[in-house]
């Protein structure tokens, strides 16, 4: 494999909560375009590692760089805008919004028009014929209103805000299609089935146009068939050019989809390598099974 650039560098990161050391000098990097698995037994520090990358917790020491820019001390919404998005181990959607709106919130992170620009629609863009309002209302009054709007758009153009809103909606619809729940677009997030909610979280994260997508146990609670289709989705996402950092308990799933794996135990990195290498690593086997490997 040719040498790729490092997208994310986790450099000697230590995190202590009071007396507990959650991460202890962890070092690894995620390369552009790969799927990196982050595995380890319960309490190994995987989610803490995610939280550090996305700015939820601040490392006690060490550095985290994304595309060469340091992330430590950055505000969370700025880290998102730099290009890191995530999902959560325990689903955290906006329950009282529709599925489509949930994804739009993510897409709004890329919106360029300011608050003032949005309120007064100052920035105008010449309108293309297919973007004009259709005059198709049934009532005469409705038609008149539409005609006035159409003429107005001809003369003044559309505001960039309007165009961005439309683009965001289109993008959101497309992402819902990608994760396979476009038929539930208008439903409130809380009324979606469990598996659909997990997929919606992925769509919402993708809407922020990340370079790096962090998935925190996306297959938790899935049956084998659902896991299989999730694997496919993760590969599809990688193929669109998004680098994926994946936390997962299910060893088979990790082995099947990742290019490389980093193994944590008690907050320390104990192994790193291709799935095949990691599978053979005695320290990893010991960590997972708690027995010596060459018993035979």
């Amino acid at each position: 494999m040719s040498e790729r650039n490092n997208l994310l560098e986790v450099d000697n990161v230590t995190i202590r909560f009071g007396g507990v050391t959650a991460l202890d000098g962890v070092d690894f990097s995620v390369k552009e375009g790969e799927i990196l698995g982050l595995i380890g037994p319960n309490g190994a520090g995987k989610t803490t590692c995610f939280n550090a990358v996305t700015g939820v917790v601040k490392p006690t020491s060490g550095a985290i760089r994304f595309r060469g820019k340091t992330l430590v001390g950055q505000q969370r919404h700025k880290i998102t805008r730099l290009g890191i998005a995530r999902t959560f181990q325990n689903i955290r959607l906006f329950p009282e919004m529709t599925a489509l709106e949930n994804v739009q919130v993510g897409a709004d992170a890329r919106h360029k028009t300011s608050v003032v620009g949005a309120l007064f629609r100052t920035w105008r863009v010449p309108v293309k014929p297919h973007e004009l309002v259709e005059v198709d209302a049934k009532s005469g009054f409705g038609r008149a209103v539409q005609q006035v709007r159409r003429t107005g758009q001809r003369i003044f153009g559309l505001s960039r805000h309007t165009l961005e809103e439309r683009a965001a909606k289109e993008k959101a619809t497309e992402l819902l299609k990608l994760v396979g729940i476009e038929h539930r677009a208008g439903e409130l997030a809380r009324s979606l089935a469990y598996g659909e909610q997990r997929r919606l979280e992925i769509a919402r994260a993708l809407a922020t146009e990340p370079g790096l997508l962090c998935l925190d146990e996306p297959a938790a609670g899935f049956n084998p068939a659902e896991k299989e289709s999730l694997l496919e989705l993760i590969r599809k996402i990688r193929d669109t050019g998004v680098t994926v950092l994946l936390i997962e308990h299910d060893m088979r799933l990790v082995m099947g989809v990742t290019d490389r794996i980093v193994v944590l135990e008690f907050g320390k990195k104990i192994a790193e390598g291709t799935p095949a290498e990691v599978r053979e690593n005695p320290a990893v086997i010991a960590a997972y099974l708690g027995v010596p490997t060459d018993a035979a």
Binding site: R76, R92, M97, V105, A205
Partner: peptide, 14 residues
């Protein structure tokens, strides 16, 4: 609405 429903997640979504 996003901040009202979940401020921490809203921040993580930009």
């Amino acid at each position: 609405r996003a901040v009202a429903q979940n401020p921490d997640v809203a921040a993580l979504m930009g």
